[in-house]
Computed example of a mutant assay.
Amino acid sequence: MTKTVPMSRFIQSYNQHLSDAERTGDTIVLQQRAGRPAWVLETEDRARDAQAATDFLSAALSAVVRDAALAERFSAELVSTLPWVAFLPEDDRRAFAAEAAETLRACASIGRYTAFATLIEDWRNTAEIWSDPELARSLSTPVDEPVDLPVDAA
């Protein structure tokens, strides 16, 4: 369970909050003012368990996308979790599934997921383009003349 506490209140009685969280197994979310990011406190054991689960799942997904039949089913099923994937062409769906699995595995190996979040956002933006057939068509059309010229060609 998650318990949200204002940072100022946590500072005033941090021992009590930590004791309560240790007893209940809660994760503490510390809210800050002025749009500053929240902090999440949890026990080291819980963080280690989550990392172990992520390592396992990312390895399993990497194995799935290496098997052609499983990769096909996995990429098709992604639509139920990420509905925007439906706008991607079939080949792009498979490419997204493979790239996401491999990126997740790499991120899990270092414990930082920024690259994974960026990958998901990039593919979501690609799906958004595919959702507008006119835009997708215009962006897929070859450019007859370059929009700009290299500096040394001028």
Rank of each mutant, 00 (worst) to 15 (best):
R124S: 02
R9T: 11
N15T: 06
A69R: 05
A59Q: 11
T81F: 00
R9M: 13
D152M: 14
E77S: 02
A68T: 13
P133M: 14
L57R: 11
A108S: 09
S131I: 03
R9A: 14
F10A: 11
V151C: 14
I28L: 12
T103I: 11
L135H: 08
T81P: 04
L88D: 02
G35A: 01
E134T: 00
D122T: 04
R36A: 06
D55F: 05
V65F: 06
A53Q: 14
T81Y: 02
A53P: 09
E128L: 12
W123T: 06
S58K: 04
D67I: 07
C107S: 12
I11A: 15
A108M: 05
W39E: 09
E121W: 03
I11Q: 15
S131C: 11
N15M: 15
R9C: 02
A59M: 13
P37D: 08
E42D: 12
L57I: 15
A95K: 05
I129V: 13
V40S: 12
R66F: 06
L82Q: 01
Y113N: 14
T4M: 05
E134D: 08
F96A: 03
F10Q: 05
E22L: 10
L104G: 07
I129K: 04
S8Q: 13
D49T: 01
A108W: 01
R94H: 10
A127F: 10
D67C: 07
T43Q: 13
P89F: 05
P37L: 08
I11C: 09
S131Q: 11
Q32V: 08
W123L: 10
S109Y: 08
D122G: 12
W39F: 15
Y113C: 09
A127H: 12
L135E: 14
A60W: 10
L104K: 03
L18T: 10
E42W: 02
R23I: 02
G111T: 01
A63W: 04
A60L: 09
D92C: 04
V65M: 06
W123Q: 11
S13Y: 10
L104M: 08
T4I: 04
D55P: 07
N15Y: 13
A97M: 03
E44G: 00
V85L: 06
V143Q: 07
E44Y: 00
N125W: 01
S140Y: 04
P146H: 03
F87C: 14
H17L: 07
A86D: 15
E121G: 13
A154W: 00
H17R: 08
F56K: 10
R94W: 10
A38D: 13
P6T: 13
R48D: 15
R112Q: 09
S13G: 00
A52Y: 02
T114P: 01
E134L: 05
S13D: 15
M1V: 07
E128M: 15
A60Y: 04
L135Q: 13
I129W: 05
L18Y: 15
A100P: 12
S75F: 07
R36C: 08
F87E: 14
G111R: 02
S8D: 15
A76N: 00
C107H: 12
A106I: 05
S138R: 14
V147R: 14
R23E: 01
R23T: 00
F10W: 08
A59V: 05
I28T: 07
W84S: 02
E72N: 10
